[in-house]
Write a protein that binds this DNA or RNA. Structure first.
Lengths: 133, 133
DNA sequence: TTTGACCTTTGACCTAACTCCAAGGTTTAT
DNA sequence: ATAAACCTTGGAGTTAGGTCAAAGGTCAAA
């Protein structure tokens, strides 16, 4: 059984983060002390680690809420449901990667066309391009 | 000379966006009508297009403020200054791309290891991994 | 002349995921 | 016994880039 500061320290997050997760339906302490302190169980600790691992994998907190629902009653779901979520996230990431790659390439092209010397920027091709493409 | 709605429509943004740019020091109308209406000049229109182009290239508004400063007195800057900004942005994008690529690969690995069938998720390898990696 | 489309300002709201503060109660160590 | 370190709640603030609403003034057409 842990108080909020103990669990937070053990998982390297702040107490406020745990309160935030609670308010957002991700992690409710098993109970409260008679004076109202949050008391977390080992299961809670495990659930927090689940949350942090999923976050590190790129899931949003609302994705994680969904994963926790599934996790809470695994037998109600098919493997395909879970795999679908993961693949959707892969696709989402891929879309962002593609977009940023396009931007990167455009900028690199811009940079490559620029002399980059100590000369005044009066004839800078980068500025010219942005001004009148 | 354009009123705010005219310039906004011409550039496919909302009047509020122009007011926002003004508040943030990116685009000040050349003057005001006697009743206080914003009046934009052709130069202003060109500057707005510069802003929108730079934005489309992935520059933040504060990057753009800097670019506009340079643009306003090109002779005070060297080509190297401008090229440096662009290359820093390329590097910034590259870092994000790398990070997202790592996430994508981890998730893909997770998905690949999952049967993805209609079976119950009781033994789902994805959930198992998130639970106890 | 009156209706509707435009303009003004101020200030609130949005997403995401926290983070911090204030004012107060509790626990622990010395 | 008392001070430090913890806990509680509610609510505000953060970043980025807008977006919207309210209350009012202006302008053009029918």
């Amino acid at each position: 059984m842990y108080k909020i500061g103990e669990l937070a320290a053990a998982c390297k997050v702040k107490p406020d983060t745990l309160r935030f997760y609670e308010k957002n339906g991700l992690l409710h302490p098993a109970n409260r002390s008679d004076k109202g302190y949050r008391i977390y169980s080992d299961d809670d600790a495990q659930q927090l680690r689940f949350i942090l691992r999923a976050k590190a994998m790129g899931f949003s907190l609302s994705d994680i809420r969904e994963l926790l629902n599934i996790e809470a009653s695994r037998s109600d779901w098919a493997c395909a449901d879970v795999k679908g979520m993961v693949e959707a996230k892969v696709q989402e990431l891929q879309t962002k990667i593609d977009e940023m790659t396009r931007l990167r390439d455009s900028l690199q092209e811009l940079a490559d066309a620029c002399c980059g010397g100590p000369e005044s920027a009066i004839h800078c091709s980068i500025l010219d391009t942005l001004e009148t493409k």
